[in-house]
Nucleic acid binder design. Structure first.
Length: 564
RNA sequence: GCGCCUGUAGCUCAGGGGAUAGAGCAACUGCCUUCUAAGCAGUGGGUCGCAGGUUCGAUUCCUGCCAGGCGCGCCA
């Protein structure tokens, strides 16, 4: 009873498959496997509860009108002596849909299933058994977390939760880019600011990071290590500033992420990778496999063998590894840790790296499908109707912290999750601030708080709260009550689809729809009344909605308040 | 020039091979002596960018075009 919808689907599939085999159609089509019968929850309940389009897909093969085929299948289903437990009525409609009207027992069972499973409702019974790693955010440690990182954080964390709910074994990872030359530039920026603070009249180069946070770090270094710094030799001091600045930036980035509620299972340092000799090792394997060649003093990878439009450099003529080489080595390391699927969430400006990186893995002998890159589209911040320019070097941006301060963590996360990941997202700060009352996240949270309030009220009034399994759910007869139960039944499908499509926004929409149904119910039906039986039934329904809302919000990384 | 993403209501966007295309905002009208009005009920609003193709069926998939965003380094 964990997943009633799946049970029903199975029942319908089997019945249809058997009906086709035993009807006159069976001779022509042969056996149609039950799993090949598409069974969907209907969009509109006038089409019944579930529907199949199998007749339409058989039309071509049988060279008969789909409606006729549907009638034939339906007729056989109706005359089947063996009474199935949920199916009550079978109708043919439209172009050849076979619609199934079920007994209300399936909705009552759904409500009971939600109560029985609680937080586990909607999660998959059968683990998919694939080890998945999702890497996201992985910002350069050269500036504060910005809103693009916030979007990646919200999406990555939600996707990880959704895929876990769908049965995947998921690990989340943050790649710390602590080995590149941008760290040297960061150190240099801080050191120059420090020297300026010491009264030296020196120019601050354009390539350095301009933000005020650089000066803050310089000031902090001076305050803590003032005397020691003065005594240092030049190269020693440069090294000091690089390490000091890096440590401070990482600390501040981790703090921002923690405030935003995004956590990672693994923080992976690029340095440890470099120091482990992973690059050299990778290159050795590629060389053995004949995948690299020398040209113009550089070492090239034959990415064109795997669909790239030109080969790529792995080792520059100055002997340094390229960014691509590092990425391939890193991904090889990930796969070496036993993951079957690597999901990276990147910005759209990195889309050109997808093919070369995958090509690198293929060149190493891995299947291309083991790397999936989700390109998260950009996010613009609108303030006063104007697009806020964001440039890290210029030090202009709205930070993740700003977002949390101004809009709040829950609202920020919901907003960032609301949209399809491949859609450009306009985040209007003024709107989010001024209209925070109408914010969709409050709508969902409010439904949850209302449900909690009902239960508090029931307790205060001394209403005996019957165990849901004991409530007489046949008392739920209002249309909106049954609509809610139907929506609860759709939840497991919603989790599965959101996971398969890598689409957290679907779940955000589901939560909004369920909350809407509940608000509607709340306004037209009184839960606590003199009718004890009805009260129990409605409490059971409300409690089930509360559970599912909580599950959704939890997955999305948003709090489910008991009071608002 | 090549590549990726987008084009759906006045605005911001969902949806998606199927049966009358949805929500919020904005506008208007009602609903608080009863469990939270951060709520509900209702009204108006659409050639799903354009043109072909595949299909029993396309707004959805494919191709081309148009428009917008972004990217095309021995940078990271």
């Amino acid at each position: 009873m964990h997943n009633v919808t799946e049970d029903v689907r199975h029942e319908i599939r089997t019945a249809v498959s058997e009906a086709i085999a035993s009807s006159e159609l069976g001779v022509q089509v042969g056996r149609v496997q039950a799993c090949d019968v598409p069974v969907e929850l209907t969009r509109d309940k006038s089409y019944g509860d579930f529907s199949t389009t199998v007749a339409m897909s058989l039309a071509k093969q049988l060279r008969r009108p789909p409606r006729q085929i549907a009638e034939s299948i339906a007729e056989t289903l109706r005359s089947t002596a063996r009474k199935t437990c949920y199916i009550r009525r079978v109708e043919v409609a439209g172009a050849g849909f076979i619609n199934f009207f079920l007994s209300r027992a399936w909705l009552e069972d759904t409500i009971r299933a939600v109560h029985a499973a609680g937080p586990a409702y909607g999660t998959s019974d059968a683990p998919v058994g694939r080890r998945v790693q999702i890497e996201f955010v992985s910002a350069n440690p050269t500036g504060p977390m910005n809103v693009v990182n916030a979007r990646a954080g919200a999406v990555g964390a939600a996707l990880a939760s959704i895929m876990r709910a769908a049965g995947y074994d998921v690990s989340t990872e943050y790649y710390i880019n602590d080995a590149g030359n941008q760290v040297a530039v960061l150190g240099e920026s801080v050191e120059l600011r420090y020297r300026q603070l010491q009264g030296e009249r020196i120019e601050f180069p354009e390539k350095c990071y301009q933000g005020a946070y650089i000066t803050d770090i310089a000031r902090e270094a001076a305050a803590k290590h003032g005397e020691k710094l003065k005594a240092m030799a030049a190269d020693e001091r440069t090294r000091f500033f690089r390490e000091f600045a890096l440590a401070r930036m990482l600390e501040s980035q981790k703090r921002s992420l923690a405030r935003f509620g995004v956590d990672f299972d693994v923080w992976f340092s690029e340095r440890t990778l470099v120091e482990s000799g992973a690059h050299r090792e990778m290159l050795g394997i590629l060389r053995e496999r004949g995948m690299v060649y020398e040209k113009d003093g550089a070492t090239w990878l034959r990415t064109t063998d795997f669909g790239d439009d030109k080969d790529r450099v792995l080792v520059k003529s100055d002997g340094e590894y390229t960014y691509l080489a590092g990425d391939i080595a890193y991904h090889r390391n990930k796969l070496g840790r036993g993951f079957d699927l690597i999901i990276d969430i990147w910005g759209p400006d990195h889309h050109g790296h997808v093919i070369p990186t995958r090509a690198g893995l293929q060149a190493l002998g891995y299947p291309g499908e083991c790397l999936e890159v989700l390109l998260l589209q950009f996010l613009s911040i609108l303030s006063g109707g104007e697009r806020v320019k964001m440039s890290k070097r210029a030090g202009e941006f709205v930070t993740m912290d700003d977002l949390v301060d101004e809009v709040g963590r829950d609202a920020a996360r919901y907003f960032l999750l609301m949209r399809n990941i491949e859609s450009h997202l306009d985040f209007d700060l003024d709107l989010a601030k001024s209209q925070s009352q109408e914010n969709p996240v409050y709508y969902v949270q409010y439904a949850h708080a209302r449900i909690c309030s009902i239960f508090r009220q029931a307790e205060e009034n001394g209403v005996t709260i019957v165990e849901p399994s004991g409530a007489d759910l046949s008392r739920l007869v209002e249309e909106v009550e049954l609509d809610i139960a139907r929506k609860l039944a759709a939840y497991p499908d919603e989790i599965a689809t959101s996971a398969a499509d890598r689409a957290p926004n679907r779940l955000a929409k589901y939560a909004l729809d369920l909350a809407g149904l509940f608000h509607s119910f709340y306004n037209s039906c009184r839960v606590i009344s003199d009718d004890a039986g009805l009260t129990s039934a409605r409490l059971a329904l409300s409690g089930a909605v509360g559970t599912v809302l909580r599950n959704c919000l939890d997955i999305l990384g948003i709090s489910a308040p008991e009071k608002m």
